[in-house]
Design a protein around this nucleic acid. Structure first.
Length: 304
DNA sequence: AAAGCGCCCAACCGCCAGCCT
DNA sequence: GAGGCTGGCGGTTGGGCGCTT
């Protein structure tokens, strides 16, 4: 009957991931591809719940994740999409392939919610002035048309931003992980896939660099690598990797033979969605047909 | 210098739809 | 078909950090 439990509740480690754990997880996924999370703790020896492994991968280690400040375009897009979709962060994240739903959710809760609150209280905010406040005095029909226009503009901006990305040859030359190409090949996506993996490689390289530095500096000082680590995260965020090419490749990492399912479902689907969106030439300003098939959330539409 | 406060964000929790046995 | 697990999702939490007093 059914399946065995995904993991033992006992002996499962919680809390921040250490760089060592990250490396183990990344190595495993490099070899086997993402998916079958239940097998990950068993096969890697990680004392983590399968759920925790999946979350760590999708929210932090997955290729193509962009970290740091949100651009104005991204911000506006999030606001528009939140108005349309409500708090469906995964759906919203599908239009921002470089951002995780968790990041968007956090950004909304910590920044945008406050901004909108201010707006509702009558304050002005120049970054949103072309967004919400301008909707306040117009009819719903006008608002929808304006919204389509803004989404179209955001689409253009995003398209331009993506087209500006150049092939990351320097990272390809690095080959920090054997078989990294095959992982990207799993994803039948736009040309950005190479870059997205490279950017992740950069993240992981930084992480590795920090970890190697820590472990060489203080091989007997575990607290610096595991405690200081809430650090796994801190290492990546704070270290400046000016010369990643000095990194040694990880040994024992094989290419993924048959790219399993995907590199995190959140990666494949969003890109195809985005691609559809970007390539949809029928979406023109003022053309209400064929746009996002989304109805207004009454609550959020009321904001405008 | 240090205590207090607020912000940020990684990670956990609980729920649910879909899938597997 | 039923029971139960998996994977995905949104909400929430709490530790770390920086700023202010």
């Amino acid at each position: 009957m059914g399946r065995p439990p995904c993991c033992d509740k006992t002996g499962v480690k919680k809390g921040p991931w250490t760089p060592e754990e990250d490396i183990i997880l990344v190595s495993y996924i490099q070899e086997h591809g993402p998916g079958n999370w239940r097998a990950v703790p068993t096969n890697t020896g990680l004392l983590r719940c399968s759920k925790s492994c999946r979350l760590r991968w999708t929210n932090y280690l997955r290729p193509g994740i962009k970290r740091g400040n949100f651009t104005d375009q991204e911000e506006k897009l999030i606001i528009h999409l939140q108005a349309l979709l409500g708090n469906r962060w995964a759906a919203i994240a599908s239009y921002l392939p470089e951002r995780t739903d968790n990041d968007i959710k956090n950004y909304w809760n910590t920044h945008l919610k406050k901004k909108l609150k201010k707006l509702q209280n009558g304050d002005t905010d120049e970054s949103l002035s072309s967004g919400n406040s301008s909707y306040q005095s117009i009819s719903k029909g006008q608002w929808e048309r304006r919204l389509q226009t803004d989404i179209h503009m955001a689409k253009r901006a995003l398209c331009e931003a993506l087209s500006l990305e150049k092939p990351c040859d320097s990272f390809l030359d690095l080959k920090p992980f054997n078989g990294c190409q095959s992982l990207t090949a799993q994803t039948p996506t736009p040309s950005t896939s190479t870059c997205t993996y490279a950017s992740s490689t950069e993240n992981i390289s930084k992480l590795l660099q920090g970890w190697m530095r820590n472990s060489s500096n203080s091989s007997n000082n575990d607290t610096s690598s595991s405690e200081g680590s809430a650090s796994g995260t801190t290492t990546v965020k704070n270290s400046n990797c000016n010369n990643c090419s000095t990194l040694e490749p990880l040994s024992g990492i094989q290419s993924s033979p048959e790219g399993s399912d995907d590199s995190g479902s959140a990666q494949q689907m969003p890109l195809s969605l985005l691609e559809t969106w970007l390539l949809d030439e029928t979406v023109e300003q003022g053309d209400d047909e064929g746009l996002l098939d989304l109805s207004l959330d009454d609550n959020t539409a009321g904001l405008f």
